[in-house]
Amino acid sequence: MAPEPTGTAALLVNGRGQYLLHLRDANKPHICDPGTWSIPGGGREGSESSRQAVERELLEETGLTVALEPLTVVDAHGPGGQGKDRIQVYLGAWDGDADALPCPEGIMFRWFDAATTAWLTMCPWTAEVIALHRRTAPAPALAAAPVPVPVPRSGGRARPNVIGVHLYLQRPDGKVLLGLRHPDLPFAGRTWHLLAGHCEQEGALACLVREAEEEAGLTIRAEDAELVHTVHVLDEGGDGQPRLQLFFRARAWSGTPELREPDKCLEWAWWDPAALPEPIVAYTRTAIEAIGHGRAYSEMGWT
């Protein structure tokens, strides 16, 4: 009998036939297939079985517990192309927001359809797994996919809310800093938006400080920021996910806005709140107008 594979991975598919892919870190040492899109997983530890290992890795990397069925075994090379490992790949179904996943390792999670994966820098064995799945489409695993339940518009079952943090940066002349989002982004491409990001394993103020530095090279102290508006949005982005969007005004900061992430933002510019550019993210316009009128809270989509 062949020995059990030392590596494991989970191929998750949503109800639209898209694959959940994980962008690996490009610079961290001892990373297999650095800078490529792959799927979550990792090696067995101690006396773990492959199933125990993949369930643990999936929980550690995504926070998810999903029903999994064996799909295939593939060969992969270790860091730097050295050595060869065998990876037991499992198949599961999940319908959810990739941006809401914690991602403690690597860069990000995103949903991609099979056709788009041909244009990505893919981990070779992951591309092999997706091609296999497209050819075989195992019926038992897909049949086990959870049926999405409509979000109640008032009351009903609880559902986690994604927390978004936004920087309301206003110069003494009254103009507000906005960024023009890259056209290739899955949400609001080539649209104006405030500097923003999703909370990871951190508080909202820590997220604000981190995003300001990462996206624009701005230094902000948490004690210089104040919450000035909240927008509770349903279905922003069209996925039925409730989102709590927090807007913080920075009373002081240092630095001049820079394009630190040109794959996300094309330019930074200062705009008069009374003459905002088009197109602009709808809830961003709502928040800026509400801040100007001193209102602390807005709702969108809860009809």
Rank of each mutant, 00 (worst) to 15 (best):
A139W: 04
A139R: 13
P146A: 00
T126D: 01
P138N: 05
P183Q: 05
T117Y: 06
W94E: 06
L120R: 00
A158D: 09
A137F: 11
D173Y: 08
A93H: 02
D97K: 08
L178Y: 02
R110Y: 03
A137N: 11
C199R: 15
E128G: 13
A131D: 13
A93T: 12
L180R: 09
R110V: 11
V165S: 00
L195S: 11
C199I: 05
P138C: 08
A204C: 13
G92A: 01
R135P: 10
F187G: 05
H193K: 15
R181N: 11
R157T: 08
D184H: 14
E105D: 15
L177F: 05
L194V: 10
R134T: 12
W192E: 00
A145P: 05
H133Q: 06
P186I: 01
P186S: 09
A206W: 04
R159V: 12
G179F: 05
R134G: 10
D95I: 10
H198R: 15
V165D: 07
P124G: 06
T136R: 11
L177W: 04
Q170P: 05
A93G: 15
Q201I: 13
R190K: 15
P160N: 02
T126G: 04
R157E: 13
L180T: 06
V165G: 01
F187I: 11
A100F: 00
W192A: 04
D95N: 15
G164D: 10
L205P: 03
R135L: 13
E105Q: 15
L169H: 03
E128D: 14
Y168W: 12
W192D: 05
S154W: 03
I107M: 14
G106Q: 06
F187R: 13
P152D: 11
A204V: 14
I107V: 15
L132Y: 11
A158S: 12
P152T: 10
A206I: 03
P186M: 02
E105C: 14
A137I: 10
W94G: 00
I107E: 15
R157S: 12
L169C: 11
H182V: 08
L177E: 07
T136M: 09
H182N: 11
A131H: 07
K175N: 13
A141S: 12
W125R: 12
T191P: 11
R110M: 12
F109C: 05
L142T: 02
I163C: 14
G174K: 06
A204G: 07
S154P: 10
K175T: 14
W94M: 08
A206F: 04
W111M: 09
V129L: 09
L205C: 09
G197T: 06
A93L: 10
C199T: 15
R190V: 04
P186W: 02
P140C: 02
P140K: 08
G92R: 07
C103P: 08
A118T: 13
V149H: 01
G92M: 06
G106E: 07
P160L: 06
P186V: 01
G96V: 00
L120D: 04
N161P: 03
F112W: 13
F109A: 02
L205R: 13
Q170W: 04
K175G: 00
A118H: 13
Q170L: 06
P172D: 14
A145N: 05
L167I: 04
